[in-house]
Computed example of a mutant assay.
Amino acid sequence: MVKFEQIKGFIFDLDGVIANTSVFHAKAWHQLADKLGVTWTEDLANQLKGVGRMDSLNLILKSGGKENDYTEDEKIKYATEKNDNYLSLLKGLTDKDILPGMKEFIEDLSANNYLISLASSSKNSPKVLEALDLEKYFDARVDPSTLKNGKPDPEIYVRGAEVLNLRPEECIGLEDAVSGIKSVNGAHETSVGIGDPEILNEADINFTDTSQVTLANIKKAMN
């Protein structure tokens, strides 16, 4: 692991790291799974964390043994229906929905001149940042529609460093999902896992919840 002093940028996942929009995603996917006759389980919900829209739909269909039941056009229709449902659930989102300590952490990064980018698989991330009143702190954002591969592929975190004009080893990636940690590690960046350390056991640094994520605690863990 690199030394803390080498770090110049922080790359954030959104759902479950900055705000719990993942609960809205889960609710919208659950409703679609019910409609498609696929049994919703906690394991399936965990598989969808940090995964893009079409990949999530394919995981749901595979879980129900229905992966060959729909045309590509039908899949796009269902994915769009889920997204519309998700956006309607998001309408009440405000800065009060930011996870504990994360606004202060992001403000601290900005005050200390660290560069900040967003590496979310969600095409709705600009709307979410705006609703949370955090967009002003982000120097750049990866546009997921420009990516060839979703997480756990490292592409999104490689791009997260590129949009800040930094080398991967100068960046820290923050994630709450196994697929995200694999993505950060594959990009050769320092990974911070937020959640159960037994599940996120490949992370370089672990915090059980967002309130523990501070510059001082990251520096202590790295040095």
Rank of each mutant, 00 (worst) to 15 (best):
Pro100Met: 04
Leu87Met: 09
Lys96Trp: 01
Leu93Lys: 04
Met102Gln: 02
Asn83His: 10
Ala111Asp: 08
Leu109Glu: 03
Lys66Pro: 11
Ala79His: 12
Ala111Ser: 15
Phe105Glu: 04
Thr80His: 11
Glu81Ala: 07
Lys96Glu: 07
Leu93Ser: 09
Thr80Ala: 03
Asp108Val: 07
Thr80Met: 00
Asp108His: 14
Glu67Trp: 06
Glu107Gln: 15
Glu81Cys: 01
Glu107Ser: 10
Leu93Ile: 05
Glu104Phe: 12
Lys75Thr: 03
Tyr86Trp: 07
Ser88Leu: 06
Met102Trp: 12
Leu90Ser: 00
Asp73Cys: 00
Leu99Asn: 10
Leu90Trp: 01
Lys75Glu: 06
Lys91Asn: 08
Asn83Ser: 09
Asp73Trp: 00
Asp95Ala: 14
Asn68His: 15
Lys77Met: 12
Thr94Ser: 14
Ser88Thr: 04
Glu74Tyr: 09
Asn85Pro: 01
Leu99Trp: 11
Ile76Arg: 12
Ile76Thr: 07
Lys103Cys: 07
Lys103Val: 02
Ser110Glu: 00
Glu72His: 04
Ile76Trp: 08
Leu109Met: 07
Gly92Pro: 06
Glu67Asp: 09
Glu81Thr: 07
Thr80Gly: 04
Phe105Thr: 08
Gly101Tyr: 05
Asn112Lys: 15
Lys66Met: 11
Asp108Ser: 15
Asp73Thr: 01
Ile76Glu: 03
Asp84Ala: 06
Gly101Pro: 12
Asp84Leu: 10
Tyr86Thr: 03
Tyr70Phe: 15
Lys91Pro: 09
Ile98Ser: 05
Tyr70Cys: 00
Thr94Gln: 12
Leu109Gly: 06
Ala79Trp: 15
Asn68Ser: 13
Ile106Gln: 00
Glu81Leu: 13
Ala111Leu: 07
Asn83Arg: 08
Thr80Glu: 05
Glu107Val: 15
Tyr86Cys: 03
Thr80Asn: 03
Asp95Phe: 10
Ile106Trp: 05
Gly92Cys: 00
Gly101Thr: 13
Asn68Met: 10
Glu104Trp: 02
Glu104Met: 13
Gly101Trp: 03
Asn85Leu: 08
Asp97Ser: 13
Gly101Ala: 12
Lys77Glu: 07
Glu74Cys: 04
Lys77Trp: 05
Ile98Cys: 00
Glu107Phe: 07
Asp84Gly: 10
Leu89Met: 03
Lys96Pro: 03
Gly64Trp: 13
Glu107Met: 08
Glu81His: 09
Leu99Lys: 13
Lys91Glu: 03
Glu107Asn: 10
Ser110Arg: 13
Asn85Val: 05
Leu90Val: 02
Gly92Ile: 02
Thr80Tyr: 05
Asp73Val: 02
Ala79Ile: 01
Lys103Pro: 09
Tyr78Asn: 00
Leu90Thr: 11
Asn68Asp: 13
Glu104Asn: 13
Ala111Met: 08
Lys103Thr: 12
Tyr70Asn: 09
Asp69Leu: 09
Lys82Asp: 02
Glu104Gln: 14
Tyr70Glu: 00
Ala111Thr: 11
Leu99Ser: 11
Ala79Asp: 01
Tyr70Ile: 00
Asn68Trp: 02
Asp97Phe: 08
Asp108Arg: 10
Asn83Trp: 11
Lys82Val: 04
Lys82Met: 07
Gly65Met: 06
Asn112Glu: 06
Tyr70Ala: 01
Glu81Tyr: 09
Asn112Leu: 09
Glu81Ile: 02
Lys75Met: 13
Asn112Ile: 10
Thr71Pro: 08
Ser110Tyr: 14
Ala111His: 11
Leu109Lys: 06
Glu107Trp: 09
Ala79Cys: 09
